[in-house]
């Protein structure tokens, strides 16, 4: 059984159909990349999996470890092991990063029947993850993402992911806004989380991220559907040729 199984997914937002019969299957332990032109629906897909109710699923299903994901609230999905690293992380003035992260971690632990971590245990855990992502202490005491630079926000997403240890990691353009060093650090953080038990769905526009996080499968999303699926070489081909040849190919079908 695949970890994530999406069948014939149709999604509309404000009356406009964005996803039009999307199929996708990710096996446990695999890393899938999704590429595709701007506005093709990549973030929509990521947000729908995480449970954003702005998007209306009109047809199809999403199964996560065999469970019907569409019946679950966003927080239940998170507790089941889904994590979305946002393309645009949200700023939350007045809520400290540390408090937020501990509340999240303990909510997930509680759901899974584990003891909540006390302040000491929690701090030990996050110290370790901070080193992994070369995070500055000071960022943790600030409000969630408030006043963070674009790159700091992205790094903070992966830091949260490292702390929460999800089963399915969805990365929505985590590479955009990162400088060369930060890209390497973040990619190392992601790679440290790769395991036979964990799957990843990586949305990106650029090959350079995939040089670090080497995918098992690459998909192209266009016009609300997966129009092509291939090996990691497909990403290289796209980088050279762009998407127009694909559109012609799809139209020719």
């Amino acid at each position: 059984m695949a970890m994530l199984e999406i069948r014939n997914l149709h999604v509309t937002v404000e009356g406009k159909e964005i996803l039009r019969g999307l199929d996708l299957s990710i096996e446990k332990g695999q890393v899938h990349a999704i590429m595709g032109p701007n506005g093709s629906g990549k973030s929509t897909l990521a947000q729908v999996i995480a449970g954003r109710d702005l998007y209306e699923v009109t047809e199809g299903e999403i199964l996560f470890e065999g469970k019907n994901l569409l019946e679950l609230e966003p927080e239940e999905r998170a507790c089941e092991g889904i994590f979305l690293a946002f393309q645009y992380p949200v700023e939350i003035p007045g809520v400290s990063n540390t408090y937020f992260l501990r509340a999240a971690l303990n909510a997930i632990r509680k759901y899974r029947g584990l003891e909540e971590l006390d302040a000491m245990e929690f701090l030990t855990l996050i110290r370790e993850k901070m080193q992994l992502l070369e995070m500055n202490d000071e960022l943790l005491q600030r409000s969630v993402n408030e006043g963070f630079s674009g790159g700091e926000k992205k790094r903070n997403e992966i830091f949260q992911m490292a702390v929460l240890e999800p089963k399915l990691c969805i990365l929505d353009e985590t590479d955009s806004g990162l400088d060369i060093d930060a890209l390497r650090i973040v990619a190392n953080g992601v790679n440290a989380l790769r395991s036979p038990e964990r799957s990843m769905l990586v949305v990106t526009h650029y090959q350079r991220l995939l040089d670090y996080i080497v995918p098992d499968v690459v998909h192209v999303l266009a016009n609300g559907k997966i129009v092509k699926t291939g090996s990691k070489d497909l990403a290289l081909e796209l980088e050279q040729k762009g998407y127009s040849w694909l559109e012609e190919e799809v139209l020719a079908q």
Binding site: E75, L84, V90, G94, F100, L105
Partner: peptide, 21 residues
């Protein structure tokens, strides 16, 4: 949604945002 997507229950998320305000 951001808070909930990290596992925080809806009423706690509302409470947290109200607290922040």
């Amino acid at each position: 949604f951001y808070l909930r997507s990290r596992g925080i229950q809806e009423d706690e998320a509302r409470g947290l945002l109200t607290y922040a305000f």
